[in-house]
Write a protein that binds this DNA or RNA. Structure first.
Lengths: 340, 340
DNA sequence: CTAATCACCCAAAACGTTTTGGGCAAGACT
DNA sequence: AGTCTTGCCCAAAACGTTTTGGGTGATTAG
């Protein structure tokens, strides 16, 4: 057994400094009233003994461990952290970690804590970030039942009155993309969205329909499971090929779908950008590597992650969150697939 | 203040079931001897009260929190989790998280815990994974002083007798690459390595020199800071251009360097693969996206991460680690830059 | 001169577990 | 008959903090 030798305790510091543990605690935390001379003495002996308060003990006492948890919901439906096509989430996780550290918290990556074999430490986190919850997400039910603060990235549409969320300005982004396609000569714009009932899919569709009705265009909506990857993208291409009145532009939410679709259409002689304009709703390796490279929205997960952590930390110190759209409209990266 | 209402405690379960807390503890953990009838009764009331043991309290008592920490050392020298060029680390982190969860642990991403403002929770982890430690890494000193188990990915070369490490078969990989270059017609092979004194750089250089001496080739070693990115790669190109007896192949450890170098050489009229063969030691977006795409080693961080977590968990249950090369030789992805 | 305030300090309780060191019957051996 | 196991159970201690609720003695106010 690895012996964890001799981490010194507050009691030892107290004995060594000739004061009570109360005084040590006060001296180090700056809470009670303690004479400057004794405070100095305590600080000095603490330093000498290399004393560091035991975070678990103080966590137990304070009911505050100093850990935030991050649950990337869409990954719970994938079979694993795929190396490709998930760079959005990995960037999010990295940025969230750093941001948490800056706020004095550690960040724990978790998968679905409702699973029976979830480590019991899961529920010991001080607060949770849940990205892209599904509608009426059971993870949220669990956390609420346990009284654990949480913040979602992307609204849970089944909880219209729940206010602890943050999300990009999806409606604005959608219009931005659609306008761009129109400006580049598109007359019939279709969208391809995922099947998860999350805010991104649903808000995008709603904005799209609104945009269409303003122009009297008949909406064309194709859906495809987000997990289906480039193969699913090919299926979207298939569906578009079969349409009698084919669209001349597609806004495809996931990058892998966009790449697969473009490949399939290309095989059928429909080239981009000549015959069809394509924009992807999230940037990924596939959109960057396609020929031509596919225009995409970089959702700037770093910005979202920082905002999410900041909001959660605020909630933890007692400032209630009010649902808000984070300071990102995405960065629209215009590449070859949508310009002519 | 968010009120964390009414998580039920073991005491409540005991009262409700009409037994002592000892018995509840034993019944649920399966440790002591308890009559089957009372065990059933306890389990039932625990379920009814939705009792979940408080991980912090049991962590305090057991000196085992159920959290592992991951410190990606090379990122501590970067300014932040860069979105590009660090996909190796992000893949590592993702795979490590999942692997930890499978072993019943949470995984915390940390940066350098020796920093004065590191959250105190940092040292509460049950064990640490340190990737690519620098020589005589102070993080290792700290963890050893605190008696916290750790495992490094890549040896700390300043600690030749320290056995808790794991790493890919760098020597074998190096020879594999060099042989490949030779087979494709290279007569003078150079290497470009980073300046960090970590196992990857140093072992690669040693293997390279050995390989050279076997052939009587004079070694050509260019060094460049890892953090310098594609710009540093251009500097490598510059250096190669200035050589009187120019190499006709370069094995460049980092992907960004390789891409920058190829770009610079191309500008000077030295094309790959016609005039110079190039292989990168780690695959990244830049190697995949260059024209021509650059051959690279995929170090399979997922494999390494799983092995690292497994070894650390073994250490935690008392099986000492013996330094070992993990089951990966890397996956050599041969692209256009190294074939003719 | 007494009472009240103040600055400083501390013992003990509490956080929710796990483990130690028994106690008490009932049955099994001398 | 008494003594030993054995099966089952429990009270209390312990993990290392923070906070509560005083307790001093010295200074100030009445």
């Amino acid at each position: 057994m690895t012996q964890r030798n001799s981490r010194s305790t507050i009691r030892e510091v107290a004995r060594e400094a000739g004061v009570s543990v109360t005084t040590v605690s006060h001296a180090l935390s700056g809470k009670g009233i303690v004479a400057e001379s004794t405070r100095a003495k305590v600080v000095e002996t603490a330093r000498r003994l290399r004393y560091r308060p035991n975070a678990v003990a103080s966590g137990l006492r304070n009911n505050r461990l100093g850990i935030l948890a991050l649950v990337l919901r869409p990954l719970d439906t994938l079979e694993s952290f795929l190396p490709e096509g998930v760079d959005y989430f990995l960037r999010f996780a990295g940025a969230a970690s750093l941001s948490a550290l800056e706020h004095g918290y550690g960040l724990m990556l978790l998968s679905d804590p409702t699973l029976p074999d979830a480590p019991s430490i899961s529920l010991a986190a001080d607060g949770f970030i849940i990205t892209e919850p599904v509608e009426n997400d059971p993870v949220i039910d669990l956390l609420q039942a346990e009284g654990i603060p949480l913040l979602t990235v992307g609204k849970d549409l089944g909880r219209p009155h729940y206010d602890a969320w943050i999300e990009p300005r999806t409606a604005k982004i959608t219009r931005h993309v659609l306008d761009h396609l129109e400006e580049n000569g598109a007359a019939r714009v279709a969208i391809a969205i995922g099947t998860d009932r999350n805010s991104w899919n649903i808000t995008t569709e709603a904005s799209y329909r609104e945009w269409c009705s303003e122009r009297g265009q008949e909406p064309i909506v194709v859906t495809q499971r987000e997990t289906s990857g480039t193969l699913g993208g090919r299926a979207i291409g298939e569906e578009i090929l079969s349409m009698t009145d084919r669209p001349d532009a597609v806004y495809c939410l996931t990058g892998r779908h966009a790449a697969g679709m473009m490949a399939r259409l290309g095989e059928a002689g429909i080239a981009s950008p000549a015959d069809i304009l394509i924009v992807a709703g999230s940037d990924s390796e596939q959109t960057r590597n396609s020929v031509p490279p596919i225009s995409a929205i970089d959702l700037e997960p770093e910005v979202l992650a920082r905002a999410a952590i900041a909001a959660l930390v605020e909630q933890l110190v007692g400032i209630p969150n009010r649902g808000s759209e984070a300071g990102t409209d995405g960065r629209f990266i215009i590449r070859g697939s949508s310009q002519r």
